[in-house]
């Protein structure tokens, strides 16, 4: 028990910082991935000529292991383009790359779930295309896919543990570093595992709650 207390007190600082890095990378990656995914999803409808390119991009993101994508972005891109210079950037870029492909598909499913009649009703009232996107399609779609978005965010958090491999000081990195200093993996590793599991369990409970709410709202 003394061991545990000592761990918590002595290493609260680095672990806290690590959690902060983990969450910032995940949020950053999620925001970028969602924007890119939504952009692809909308553009695909308006630029049929580019559809094969978007399809190839999505297939690549979804079908390549995240670890390889991470090393590819961090070292191969850097070799070729001189960017990303910082490992932090490489971390969120790689995570966003992976998720943007999944999210593009999620958004597409969300748009498909909005009945055509709802758009026609708005057209029949003379509402403009832009307003229809903003007021009818996007809100309904976001309600429908909110649980899937949350699940993708959870996937990003899980994958973010990998960035420790390219020396980003996230929670996993701190855990490994402190294990080296203490020479005993048991308390630190277990504590960090518990933190991750608690954070992710809380998020999936939230996601389930969201799904119930939307179901009640949108069922008809």
């Amino acid at each position: 028990m003394g061991f545990w207390t000592r761990t918590l007190l002595a290493d609260a600082g680095p672990l806290w910082n690590g959690l902060y890095v983990t969450l910032s990378i995940s949020v950053m990656a999620f925001v970028v991935a969602a924007s890119v995914g939504l952009g692809i999803c909308i553009l695909r409808g308006y630029l049929p000529a580019l559809r094969p390119i978007f399809a190839a991009y999505i297939a690549f993101c979804r079908n390549t292991p995240i670890f390889i994508q991470l090393l590819w972005v961090a070292y191969a891109w850097y070799d070729l383009l001189g960017w990303p210079k910082e490992v932090f950037t490489a971390a969120w870029v790689a995570l966003a790359l992976q998720s943007s492909g999944y999210l593009a598909e999620t958004f597409r499913a969300g748009i498909d779930s909005v009945p055509l009649g709802h758009v026609e009703a708005a057209l029949a009232l003379g509402i403009s295309r832009l307003s229809i996107w903003r007021r009818i399609i996007l809100p309904q779609m976001l309600l429908t896919i909110a649980p899937s978005l949350m699940n993708q965010f959870i996937v990003i958090i899980k994958c973010s543990t990998l960035v420790s491999v390219i020396a980003v000081p996230d929670l996993m990195f701190q855990a490994l570093r402190l294990t080296g200093i203490w020479g005993d993996p048991v308390p630190i590793m277990s504590f960090v595992a518990v933190i991750f599991i608690a954070v992710i369990m809380a998020l999936s409970a939230l996601s389930k709650h969201l799904a119930d709410l939307t179901h009640a709202r949108l069922q008809s």
């Binding site: 009703a121 708005a122 009232l125």
Partner: peptide, 29 residues
């Protein structure tokens, strides 16, 4: 759009927008 604003339409499937209240549905346009 200008003509459509003067021509009301009612559909077989109602097509109310489920994410808005009844009042919001009527006020939107």
């Amino acid at each position: 759009a200008r003509v459509r604003a003067e021509v009301g339409m009612v559909f077989q499937q109602f097509n109310l927008w489920p994410h808005m209240t009844v009042a919001q549905n009527v006020m939107e346009a």
